[in-house]
Design a protein around this nucleic acid. Structure first.
Length: 600
RNA sequence: GGGGGUGUAGCUCAAUUGGUUAGAGCGCUGCCCUGUCACGGCAGAGGUUACGGGUUCGAGCCCCGCCACUCCCGCCA
């Protein structure tokens, strides 16, 4: 190693020391007679001084011509900066290095965008940042994210090791199991027409590991889903995958609470209180209209079904008569909502099949609304009391079947929060983290089009024991032993106690999900077989590692915590992948491409 | 698959809403400058307004198409 110190190391006490520093030219300030270069490496930066009075002219000349981000090595002497020239903004601001010699290790071309000024760099088009990701990652903000991600991964491994878990790697060339997400397929050269699939998760392998007697397994597992992307979804992502034997749900709650406690302490030096609150699926929908509620602000949903039973307002009265519910929400301080904002909310309602969105604007001492004239005094009094209506409020209603009504207002609640945040009327402490477990999900949902049940989580989730008899009589009532961990409205992960009895698993596959017996055998036969030979009761969970890091870094886009992420269309701009391959490669794989690639 | 947004100098953004030669800051090039740290000063170069059509006397601006990026819905067992 050539350097004696890194660029965030020298302090006043080092004055007089001869040092060698290496790094990138962060910025250069040429005052004519004297030249300052801030040298930056991964750790930070140090000011170096080029004074022509004690430097060969050639060195001074070369230094004055350096472009930003050139890589250099300097040798010099540390000295305290003259009084009044110290820089309190950087940790090395007390000192500077008086350069005696310099080597240009590699000059840099002129940059496509500036990386030295964070205010400028933060605004650079993400497309350009992705094309030159290596430059983007040099920015201290991005380097901080990479470093934090690494710390969190190591803390996770250390905690899981402390808890007696084995890290086991599972294959990424797996079998296609076309339930759920679309898979990436990998052609098999050795047998034409057969394919591997990249795993959507190591779910089946980790359950097999339980049958193997591993008892406690974890993995930072790369997973692949060929679905459309979002700010919080990439085609390949990392999950903290966990499975345990001989446990109940409580064991998972305690394990994960301990893990997140360790992670928050490591990453943010914060002590988060445990245990986390637990909320049933039904309560989450009733109060927040979503199964991953953001509980950092109010505006909860309120039920008015009884108040509007037989109401003169036909839409409400008929809805209740038809078995539906009336839900309302008070968007505090949003009476001034624009026509456009109300239209956006109405669109949300319509996207859930509602005909429109009823509202009341409370302004200038009156209720402005096309529907208020139908309300009687008792109905008005109930609204005022249960919603705490005040001047400046906006009241929104949903009248529909229970799930729909809840989900409509749940969407609108989140939209209203965004509007209020933008107006400065809603402020949320960035250091606030509301963790909660969402539990007691229904095991199954019914698909009317396909006329069959589907797993609301996945088909390996165990029913609550006392509900097992209902599987054959009243599947809708069966609760699953499933749990989601939610923080600030983000689904951080989910898991369940699994089915470990081959016969129960077979019933789920064949009778409820109506997968034909021979297909069950083809896809899951090996699992059912494994379960015959002493499968222990087991359960587990998977946490989205990218989302976890994003939350800790205070960003909403997981691209900011992934070194080389893909664009919304699943491409890598830097390497131009995916790309066409040669005819020979295709022949080897016995593949013929039918749709011609468009000319570039 | 659907809906919204964006695309103007290397970067970030303007352009009086269809009107003369498309501007600014940063960056870049040259010159000046011995205590800067967003150094400063002077001068200069740099544009197929993403791309292809159309309407118009005239298009960065309007229309059609197309590409890329982005946000959302669907989708994500």
């Amino acid at each position: 190693m050539k350097r004696t110190h890194h660029c965030n190391e020298l302090r006043a006490s080092d004055a007089g020391r001869a040092v060698i520093l290496t790094g990138w030219v962060h910025s250069r300030r040429d005052l004519g007679g004297v030249l300052f270069i801030d040298l930056r490496d991964r750790e930070g930066r140090t000011q170096t001084v080029f004074d022509p009075s004690d430097l060969p002219p050639a060195v001074f000349d070369a230094a004055s011509k350096l472009h930003a981000e050139s890589v250099i090595e300097i040798e010099g002497k540390v000295r305290n900066r003259p009084e009044g020239t110290r820089n309190a903004k950087i940790l090395t601001g007390e000192v500077e290095v008086q350069v005696q010699s310099m080597t240009v290790l590699n000059p840099s071309a002129i940059l496509p965008f500036q990386v030295d000024d964070p205010e400028v760099a933060n605004k650079v088009n993400e497309e350009l940042r992705l094309q030159y990701r290596y430059l983007d990652l040099r920015r201290p903000e991005m380097m901080r994210n990479l470093r934090l991600r690494s710390k969190v991964a190591i803390a996770t491994r250390s905690y899981m090791d402390d808890q007696g878990f084995l890290e086991v790697e599972t294959p990424t060339l797996f079998k296609s199991t076309p339930e759920g997400a679309r898979e990436f397929l990998v052609p098999n050269r050795r047998e034409p027409g057969t394919f591997y699939a990249l795993p959507q998760s190591p779910q089946q392998f980790k359950q097999i590991l339980m049958v193997s007697g591993v008892e406690r397994y974890f993995q930072l597992a790369r997973c692949y889903r060929d679905e459309d992307l979002r700010a919080d979804r990439q085609p390949e992502f990392t999950q903290v995958d966990i499975e345990m034997s001989f446990i109940e749900r409580e064991d998972i709650y305690a394990l994960i609470e301990g893990l997140l406690k360790r992670v928050w302490k490591t990453a943010l030096n914060m002590d988060i209180p445990t245990p986390f609150k637990r909320i049933s699926f039904e309560e989450a929908l009733n109060r927040w209209g979503i199964d991953k509620p953001d509980t950092r602000f109010g505006m909860e949903l309120v039920d008015f079904t009884e108040e509007f039973r037989g109401s003169k307002f036909g839409v409400f009265g008929n809805c209740v008569a038809g078995g539906g519910v009336i839900k309302a929400m008070n968007a505090k301080g949003l009476a001034g909502a624009t026509q456009g904002q109300l239209e956006t909310m109405t669109e949300y309602a319509k996207s859930f099949g509602a005909k429109g969105l009823a509202f009341i604007k409370v302004e200038n001492g009156e209720w402005k609304s096309p529907i208020v004239k139908f309300f009687n005094d008792a109905e008005k009094a109930a609204l005022t009391e249960k919603l705490g209506i005040e001047q400046g409020d906006l009241i929104l209603f949903a009248a529909d079947q229970w799930l729909n009504a809840c989900e409509i207002l749940g969407k609108i609640r989140l939209y209203c929060a965004e509007v209020l945040k933008a107006q400065g009327k809603l402020v949320i402490d960035p250091a606030r983290f509301d963790f909660l477990w969402v539990v007691e999900f229904p095991l199954l949902g019914f698909d009317r089009e396909m006329n069959r049940w589907y797993s609301s989580h996945h088909p390996f989730t165990a029913p609550v024991a006392e509900d097992i008899p209902l599987l054959k009589t009243d599947p809708k009532k069966v609760r699953g032993q499933h749990y989601d961990i939610v923080v600030n409205g983000v689904e951080l992960g989910g898991g369940s106690i699994r089915i470990h009895q081959a016969d129960v698993q077979k019933t789920i596959f064949e009778e409820l999900l109506q997968i034909p017996a021979e297909e069950t055998q083809l896809r899951f036969g090996y699992m059912l077989e494994a379960f015959k030979y002493g499968a222990p009761p087991h359960g587990g969970i998977a946490l989205g590692f990218d989302r976890l890091c994003a939350i800790l870094c205070g960003t909403t886009s997981i691209r900011d915590v992934i070194a080389f992420p893909k664009t919304a269309k699943g491409t890598c701009i830097m390497t131009s992948s995916p790309s066409a391959v040669t005819g020979r490669q295709l022949r080897d794989l016995h593949i013929e491409v039918k749709a011609a690639k468009k000319e570039a």
